[in-house]
């Protein structure tokens, strides 16, 4: 169990800044997920941590010790790549035992450790298979076993589940994160899947434009996003309402809402579809224009004259096309963002 500290890590490619003075700590045994749009240097950061790329500036500390000058093979920071990279010419057993063999452990010690690891990932007895004989989920588990076999100080997962279909993804997530909790390995998970990050990580870090936008526990990142960018990460069918704050009140076409302690000025409110409540109301001014049934939730696109909104309702509420409805918007002051930054971002 070690604690990782990144100290002002910067990296450029072809004069394009990918990472700009990134400082971040990962507590011992913690699972931190790195979230952000593609091309924001998440994978680069993992490679820098693993020692496969060198940062242009800054330092990496494992338990207070700089590892920046340590070559990848001495760091014990194992990166599990997105496409698993099981060595195709080696058997499952040889793959899992690879790191131990490189460390010149005895054949019998390697054999014991390999079977232990395969048992951990529920693949006992497949030592002699070749990677091409495995399914996607099995490959994933072998890759994990291979990484864990060398008792890494840090586990780095690069979008580990993105190649799996939805059903398999859920069971693999359960398995992998249960193992991570059990072994208490300090882990960084890069992912595109915000739901995965919310459900499984101890803390999340949101990266954008080479800068850390926010680091916090998942619930707070979801509820109190630090910027519009962060708010935009979660979910689809989000409504953006332009307005202005005067005297701690947000004014827009929707009406007046409490704006907490926000300073005066133009603002944009992020209204997630679940914040728009619908009620069947024959005298309602809103009309259902589109209905998208998505199983656990149903999305409604509603309109009033030129105004449009997305709403999400639990499955027990039922509105049909052209139904008249009235709405309640639960606007939250935490989701108000100054318009200047919003304009910059768009």
């Amino acid at each position: 169990m070690i604690k990782i500290a990144l100290d002002r890590i910067s990296k450029q490619y072809d004069r394009k800044t990918v990472l700009s003075r990134i400082s971040l700590t990962v507590e011992a045994g913690e699972l931190l997920s790195l979230l952000g749009p593609s091309g924001t240097g998440k994978t680069t950061l993992l490679k820098i941590l693993a020692g496969l790329e060198d940062a242009d500036a800054g330092d990496i500390l494992f338990d207070g010790q700089s590892v920046r000058r340590l070559p990848p093979e001495k760091r014990k920071a194992v990166l599990v790549f997105q496409d698993y990279l099981l060595f195709p010419h080696l058997t499952v057993g040889e793959n899992v035992g690879f790191g131990l063999k490189m460390a010149k452990q005895s054949a019998s010690a390697v054999r014991t450790r390999v079977s232990e690891m395969l048992q951990l990932v529920q693949l006992s007895g497949s030592e002699n298979k070749y990677p091409r004989e495995l399914s996607g989920g099995q490959k994933q588990r072998v890759a994990l076993a291979r990484a864990l076999a060398i008792e890494p100080r840090v586990l780095l997962l690069d979008e580990p589940f993105s190649n799996l279909d939805v059903l398999l993804r859920h069971s693999m997530q359960e398995l992998v994160f249960a193992i991570q909790r059990k072994l208490k390995i300090t882990t960084i998970l890069v992912t595109h899947d915000w739901a995965e990050a919310l459900m499984f990580s101890d803390r999340m870090a949101v990266l954008d434009n080479g800068v850390v936008q926010q680091v916090d526990i998942p619930e707070r990142v979801y509820r109190n996003p630090a910027s519009l960018k962060v708010a935009q990460l979660f979910g689809t069918s989000v409504n953006y309402i332009d307005g202005a704050v005067r005297n701690q009140t947000f004014l827009s076409w929707m009406g007046e809402y409490r704006a907490g302690d926000r300073a005066d000025g133009p603002y944009q409110a992020v209204v997630r579809p679940e914040q728009v409540e619908l009620r069947a109301d024959a005298a309602g001014e809103w009309r259902v224009q589109k209905k998208i049934f998505a199983g656990q939730t149903t999305y409604y696109h509603i309109g009033k004259e030129e105004r449009q909104l997305w709403a999400a309702s639990p499955p027990n509420t039922r509105h049909e096309l052209a139904d008249q409805v009235s709405i309640t918007v639960n606007l939250r002051p935490e989701l108000l963002f100054p318009k200047a930054t919003a304009g910059e971002d768009q």
Partner: peptide
């Protein structure tokens, strides 16, 4: 080049990575 990277993070030195992974591939 990713195979070499994978071998290295698993603890293989440059020569080990060349001998056991890169050359066979």
């Amino acid at each position: 080049s990713q195979w070499e990277d994978q071998a290295k993070v698993l603890g293989a030195s440059r020569w080990q990575a060349a001998r056991y992974i890169v050359l066979p591939l």
